[in-house]
Amino acid sequence: MGSVSNIKTCVTQLGTVGSDLNFFIFEAPEQCHIESIYIVTGTTKAADNSNYATVTIKNLGVGGAGTITVATSSNNAAGLILTADVPKAFVMSTTAAYHEVAVGEVLQAQVDVSVAGTCTFGAETAIIVNWVPGTGSGQ
């Protein structure tokens, strides 16, 4: 990412999340390429297969009905720990075309908690979208 010029960033505060919930995190002002997405929390969330949350970043398109998965993150055992105050990179889709976002398209973070009220993100939770204008990386 360090070699990418003209990179931009957009931070969205989620606040406390204790149940399944959706958040709008980005609206493309022009054709752009999603370089990376991070999640950061104020408290550590251990990797745990019985107490975890999965966050899926969906591209809703311009009409609100899109279902493309751009990236995912989880703190289940496979997804690993989410350490306090350390931004954790989402796993980007292996389909490169899904990293391209057209003008007006909306990205939504869909939070799915394994146990409502137990597996929670704290008040400091935020998602960071790093993007570059144009198509492809390093514009």
């Binding site: 931009k8 969205t12 709008f24 995190i25 980005f26 002002p29 022009e30 204008p133």
Partner: peptide
């Protein structure tokens, strides 16, 4: 919107 380039975006969740 197409008149502009290099646009920045800021998102704020207000909730209800």
């Amino acid at each position: 919107m197409s008149d502009h380039r290099d646009i920045e975006v800021s998102v704020m969740n207000t909730g209800a």
